[in-house]
Write a protein that binds this DNA or RNA. Structure first.
Lengths: 194, 194
DNA sequence: TCAGCGACTTACCGATTGGTAAGTTAACTT
DNA sequence: AAGTTAACTTACCAATCGGTAAGTCGCTGA
């Protein structure tokens, strides 16, 4: 059989960016098709419906995030966690699309949804934290609460960057981000240290 | 002149809930009109366009948030800040719509927008923090970074509640939230204490 | 060589979108 | 009593929405 995977992945990339920018309802198949340089029926051919396309985008993102956590889990758990979160905070600008999409997934996934796209990612992080001495015997709630505090703060800043630049200008935004990264650095160390 | 303020405010309330749930692009004037029990042209009569209606919703939310901060700023600044953030974390479930809307405002407001709906709210919080002994002489970036870390973590949990319930069930969600509130309590105290 | 299939295309569809135009009606003003 | 205005309504509209139907075309395995 022929191989359409590269084209499909390119469509997913375009869709990821557009969905991150304007959300599920803000994106039209026509707009996606136009940017991809194909007819919208090409997209429907591969993904069936707009919803399934959105699902595929989220699944792909989830896999990417899980792979990153897996890479951070190869060495010492505590050091891996610290490095992972510090990287997340430091490169939040470059990863805006990802962050926006994660937040949109949280906002737009209804309770009746069949699948929770970000669950594997959260569980991978929880398992990694569980491997540190400090959290070995802790209740799950406690780990999850701590992780949410870290992830939440970082992702929130990530999605706020456009607004921050608009409100205070690019220089101030950058200054805030640097201070913020320092604070996160301290918080993640406090999180893993006994 | 006659007084349409109560009706208008009711429309804004309905719009706030719908925009919080599905975002700007996910809401149609027809759906809003149906819930309000009027024709969609009634809404256009008062607000002109859908965008202006959305703007009015965000302005109203911003005013609400600012009023709350102002109330928290009447006594001791440090105590006020602690009480404000603890309340935010404790009642995050009841304030889901607000939180979702704030996040959507951050996601959907483009850089070319004329107004940043949440700016007054952020600045009110910054000024309040500035009045505490610890932050009196600190650079603005530092205060803003710290506030963002707190607000971000709380709002992130707020918008994640549906997902958390879906992933882990209502009991676990509640357990996470309680642990989370404790952690935030510690963080906000650390933020204001010298 | 030719049947079959995967990767598309053009042509089309009914429903819905935000918005305009032109009333209607009741209350208030003068 | 007449006129004005605020708060709506019904009747439309072109554009766009997601999706279906029915091909076209080049590659591939038999």
């Amino acid at each position: 059989m022929t191989n359409a995977a590269p084209a499909v992945d390119r469509y997913l990339e375009i869709a990821e960016r557009q969905f991150a920018e304007t959300g599920f309802h803000g994106v039209s198949l026509a707009a996606l098709a136009k940017e991809a340089g194909v007819s919208k029926q090409a997209l429907l051919h591969f993904f069936g419906t707009k919803e399934k396309l959105y699902g595929a985008v989220l699944k792909r993102l989830s896999d990417k995030l899980c792979a990153e956590v897996a890479k951070a889990a190869t060495g010492d758990p505590a050091a891996g966690l610290v490095a992972y979160f510090e990287g997340l905070a430091k490169y939040s600008l470059e990863r805006q699309a990802e962050g926006r999409l994660v937040v949109r997934a949280l906002l737009d996934t209804e309770e009746t949804a069949r699948f929770w796209p970000m669950k594997p990612y959260l569980e991978a992080l929880t398992e990694l934290a569980r491997k540190t001495p400090k959290w070995q015997a802790a209740p799950l709630d406690e780990i999850r609460a701590g992780l949410f505090q870290l992830i939440g703060a970082i992702q929130y800043l990530t999605i706020s960057q456009t607004a921050l630049t608009g409100m205070y200008g690019e220089e101030d935004r950058q200054a805030i981000e640097e201070r913020f990264a320092d604070r996160i650095s301290g918080s993640i160390r406090a999180f893993v240290d006994a």
